[in-house]
Amino acid sequence: MYGTGLAKGLLLTLRHFVDSYVDDIRYGFRKYHHSTDNFAIRQGTKTKGVITVQYPDEKVAVPERFRFVPFLIVEDEDHPTRSGKDWCTSCGICAKVCPPQCIWIVRGNDPNTGRPVPEPEAFFIDIDICMNCGFCAEYCPFDAIKMDHDYELASYDRTTHHIHDKERLSKPNSYWRSIAPTRAYEEMLVRGTWEHIDVAKEARRGAARSRPAAPPPAPQAEDAATAVASEVASPAEASAAPAPTAEGATPWTEDDAKREERRRKALERKARRAAKRGQ
């Protein structure tokens, strides 16, 4: 009969309309409530009906691999030996793999000797040109440049705000670990340490030097090596991580004990939070 196809289609539209309210009832009208527990469900594969996200009152948190405008990793403020130091060694690979060529690096030189030092003197990214491809982060051999998750970068003036210099680009290592914990962990497995790869190398070298001569080893190498040991030995990743250099490890100093205490507390907090989420 002429018109049945039309009627069927209209019924389907009606069902979609009703479904969105059925969803409301199913979640006890908590659909727009500011708690996050039902968000994953109504955005997931089981949901029917209307699924609008009320931006900016609520936002979809971006997944870990999300990439938007790179940033540079610097060591955390409370790092014992390398506080505030760049992870970047100014090797220049990011500038070479950048498809639109939006990265400018000035290599640092030692003012006394004139020889290059493994730290960039200046680092610029023109974010108007950046195409967010993520190659710089992917091919960086030092895990020093990462793609950010902060996509709200609108500004009133492109000429002053859109060329990010080193200061603007730098973010602490802990920030990277907080936005992408899984990836930071995977990178740690590849490097073999939570520290910068140079620290590990230095520690290995220090350990190799100290082996025949017996303790005490050079203070800096000792510190770094113990840092490696204590970091990697945390319960979660102990099995997968390569064993640190045992030779470099020394009995706990007071400083180390304090650090270990802080670490244990942090892990406890984390476990409590996890338990809460699980309930």
């Binding site: 955005q43 948190a61 971006v62 997944p63 907080s178 936005i179 899984t182």
Partner: peptide, 21 residues
């Protein structure tokens, strides 16, 4: 990259809503 084990996100901006599958 290979498939991640979980499709999950981490809250980062204010008002972020998190998903994990």
């Amino acid at each position: 990259g290979d498939l991640p084990e979980r499709l999950k996100s981490v809250s980062n901006l204010t008002n972020d809503r998190v998903r994990d599958y």
